[in-house]
């Protein structure tokens, strides 16, 4: 394994992520993978990787690292004011680094996650065909954990393609207000219609304690009219579940596979990548749409992105 770089400062939570692991939820294994898979795809495509190659996911504040080899890299997602040898560098383009070069990311002002893709991809512990890091159980990535000072990240040397120029119009720009389109959940009927209308019209604030498993939503209380205990039943990334205290939880890529709280909504696949960019304190609105409209919306978004990034999938 060739060393790409050594970590000088790990950032708040920097992990190796790819598109995640599929089809293992029946074993309790979450999907994981990039919290913003569109930005993962853009960073990879910009450096000539397959869209789903493993890359670094940086959270809120990015890392500083020293390169150990000649290699191209590309940045995407939240602007963390990246500097290469103290000079500002752009995102969504291949940048060449030489041994000894120092890349430093700072804090994002808007959006929560940035991606750093390296030409050829990254090495990591594979489990169910994915090297995505799932920290709670220590699976994937580098020893299943976030990077630490002194860690070495390794290259994978996968097949390369021509780097893709990501057009300006496709590059996301993040603010502090988010609209997430969602279909009704399997338990929406167990809530008072007034509560449901409120859910789909009033803003929520993202709570302080958010992680890749889920975000707490602060706002009007969402309490089901059905007080009976619910038996454990499936949840997915994008499920909004309502614990008895009334503060909903919006589940992220590391969502557990089953839960015991009523599910009021399911964010559509096209908008799942946005969840990965929500910061504590940001405002969130849920817009109710029908399942058929959701399928069309997701399909159109996927076709658009795949016309630049081969084989890209939102699922």
């Amino acid at each position: 394994m060739m060393a790409i770089a050594t970590i000088d400062r790990p950032g708040l939570q920097t992990t190796i992520q790819d598109a995640g692991r599929r089809g293992a939820r029946h074993l309790g294994v979450p999907q994981s993978g990039a919290a913003d898979r569109v930005c993962l795809a853009f960073a990879n495509a910009a450096v000539g990787n397959r869209w789903d190659a493993p890359a670094l996911e940086c959270t809120m504040t990015g890392p500083a690292l020293s390169f150990e080899m000649d290699i191209g890299f590309a940045l995407s997602g939240a602007d963390m004011g990246a500097l290469l040898n103290d000079e500002p560098v752009g995102r969504y383009q291949t940048i060449s680094a030489r041994p000894g070069d120092r890349l430093a990311l700072g804090a994002a002002q808007a959006g929560a996650r940035a991606y750093i893709a390296f030409a050829g991809g990254m090495a990591g512990f594979a489990f169910f065909d994915s090297v995505s890091t799932y920290m709670p159980a220590g699976l994937g990535g580098l020893e299943g954990r976030a990077l630490r000072t002194g860690d070495t990240i390794g290259s994978r040397k996968a097949t390369m393609m021509a780097p893709v120029d990501i057009p300006d119009t496709l590059r996301p720009h993040f603010g502090h207000d988010w609209i997430l389109r969602a279909t009704e959940g399997p338990d929406t009927e167990s809530f008072n219609p007034k509560t449901v209308r409120h859910f789909f019209s009033a803003p929520f604030k993202a709570g302080r304690r958010g992680d890749r498993m889920g975000l707490r939503l602060i706002g009007a209380e969402m309490i089901s009219e059905d007080a009976r205990a619910m038996k454990s039943s499936a949840v997915f990334p994008g499920t909004v579940q309502c614990p008895p205290d009334g503060a909903p939880i919006l589940l992220g890529p590391d969502a557990q596979t089953v839960g015991g709280y009523r599910r009021i909504a399911q964010v559509i696949d096209a908008d799942l990548p946005l969840i990965g960019q929500i910061r504590p304190g940001d405002r969130i609105w849920f817009r109710r749409i029908k399942a058929q409209t959701a399928r069309q919306t997701t399909l159109q978004r996927q076709i658009l992105i795949a016309s630049f990034v081969s084989d890209f999938s939102l699922r």
């Binding site: 089809g23 029946h26 399997p186 039943s233 499936a234 997915f236 596979t257 699922r315």
Partner: peptide
Amino acid sequence: VDDAVAGIDSVAMRFDP
């Protein structure tokens, strides 16, 4: 079929359209 997940008294299925 992408996922088929059993709960205690339910089965959820996600499919590839």
